[in-house]
Design a protein around this nucleic acid. Structure first.
Lengths: 335, 335
DNA sequence: TTGAAAGCGCTAACAT
DNA sequence: ATGTTAGCGCTTTCAA
């Protein structure tokens, strides 16, 4: 900038004003300086500008990972969610700082904000962090989390109505004639726990007692899903349907069942969760509980911006609907 | 930091030294200051630090989008690639700035670097930008692109051997008895063009003349894929195999074929490209050309870091292998 | 071992 | 309409 000022024969202040479109300059000077800057391929140093302005147009998006599984970022739903947030942020001219963090050292995450790297945080998934998160909220760090709404939460969440989703899926299965529905998913996670609560409620309303051993606390790891389904089949457990906590789980389960000689939906009905883009192209087309991925990004960002504008953290719940396709329909259309 | 200095009864310089682990302090003073800083929940302001140090630990990852289709970030392969890059960056203690940019205004992308936001760029996909990219390279902006190696490129690319991949897939199809292989993919993109070149070469080597009208310049848009496959079937075009430029395309095609009464692999053989995680769980399990997604992120980052260290841009090619599963094998194991 | 002072690139009072 | 000056939060000579 100093260079530009020198070459243009003006002060740095004038250059700054020109570049920021101030009204206090003669249009021709401004024009001339802007032109010069462009020709020199100059752009304002954002770090310095932010330092001076104490502002910041970047949002940190943090994907926690469990140090024990240490699995890579791979679930298509979370990946799509990131894409959706990126779109929402880009649309608003905000930048996105993406990082992964060990859940056990969530404190590090906060640093983004404390260190002035970002002005707010979007946390993908609340995992087992509920208490930590409440504490974080007390420290007035602006953040939203994708997850389940909890009774005593001091922070904002955006997510579907998991308990309703679980109930819709299970009720549909029960209505289709299933009597023994497997639940696949780690109920240690709040979202999944709520889906299980829906599962339980659907049984209650249908007057059917759920079979305890058909509840599997399967983590989001391919190998575990396969192992659990194999165990279910090989142990001779009787079941006629599966409600899986994610589409990826459902697809893995279907594929495993098929390998073991069980057909879906002919022998076993299956419903997944999320409605990832591939769900409708799967065979059989996957019945699932839809989480509106595009609006998810929008809502997360909106909720965060509200907080940044000084409002109290407000949670948002997204519409949750059952999408019935082939995997849960008995007289399957496809041969 | 001034606060800490005051409370600790030392100068800001001392605090700075303590926090950076300088050897010039007595261990106990350092200890005391570090402790105090922690208790105050203080972290160094990175913007200021970077400004002063003229350094920068962040890398911009840019996903170009075509303003005409304006489609959201959704292809599982690209999404996984982003995940992979995020992992590689995190492992090296680097930060990732993710953004989308209109291909027509790639200049804006450069700003990340010019403005000191990031010290290098990873570009996901080279699209139609080859010439722009060469020019960019001449301006000595450190960047790598995920894509095809071109004859006259002045910049670094990381990618598979697309031409070999195309040949492997096509040769496999031809060897399996296919005579009329559809090519699905937009050859306007360098990567796809190379895959098509492999398709051509495989035919040549097999002494089979490819059927011109079976080449479809299908863009990466769900609706177009479906439309093209429908057209293929309805127009009465004869074909017995499809080589699709991505797994998503292949899956969409298979699903569409099935809807129209054509079975895969019984009536039509299909091979995809990428080997996304879901490919093996698809039904029929998808034969495909594997792009090693985990090492992709690693290599992109390594290549960029090399440039940042002052070396000339060097491209890297990843191993490309054919994975034969069920969708291209005639006597399918599954009923 | 510590402090004083200068300066990274920018903006905004304040002065002219 | 433009320039002068101070200062954002940090690091680092240089001096003590």
């Amino acid at each position: 900038m100093a260079d530009i000022a020198r070459i243009a024969g003006v002060s740095r202040a004038t250059v700054s004003r020109a570049l920021n479109g101030s009204k206090l300059l003669s249009p021709e000077t401004r024009e001339r300086i802007v032109e010069l800057a462009r020709s020199m391929n100059y752009s304002i140093n954002v770090a310095a500008q932010n330092l001076r302005l104490k502002q910041n147009r970047t949002i940190a998006v943090i994907v926690p990972f469990d140090p024990s599984t240490r699995q890579h970022l791979s679930d298509p739903f979370f990946l799509s969610l990131i894409g959706s947030i990126a779109d929402a942020l880009t649309a608003r001219g905000l930048e996105m700082l993406l990082s992964r963090a060990d859940v056990s050292e969530l404190e590090t995450a906060t640093q983004c904000v404390d260190a002035g790297r970002a002005s707010g945080i979007v946390l993908i998934g609340q995992w087992h962090l509920h208490d930590h998160l409440n504490e974080l909220a007390r420290r007035a760090v602006p953040f939203v989390v994708w997850g389940a709404r909890m009774a005593d939460q001091a922070y904002a969440t955006v997510g579907g109505d998991n308990s309703r989703g679980g109930e819709l899926a299970t009720a549909h299965l029960l209505r289709s004639g299933a009597k023994r529905v497997v639940f696949l998913g780690d109920t240690g996670l709040p979202e999944i726990a709520e889906r299980f609560e829906g599962y339980r409620r659907a049984h209650e309303r249908a007057g059917i007692k759920p079979v305890a051993r058909l509840r599997r606390d399967t983590p989001f790891v391919q190998a575990s899903i396969i192992a659990d389904v194999e165990d279910l089949v090989n142990s001779g457990a009787r079941f006629d349907a599966i409600f899986a906590a994610s589409d990826l789980m459902a697809m893995t389960a279907i594929s495993t069942l098929r390998r073991l000689g069980r057909g879906v939906p002919d022998d076993i009905l299956v419903v997944g969760y999320d409605d990832i883009p591939l769900a409708s192209f799967f065979h059989p087309a996957l019945s699932t509980v839809r989480q509106p991925i595009e609006s998810a990004g929008e809502q997360l960002v909106e909720s965060l911006l509200e907080q940044l504008a000084g409002n109290a953290p407000a949670s948002r719940q997204l519409v949750t609907e059952l999408i019935v396709r082939e995997s849960s329909v008995v007289a399957s259309r496809t041969a």
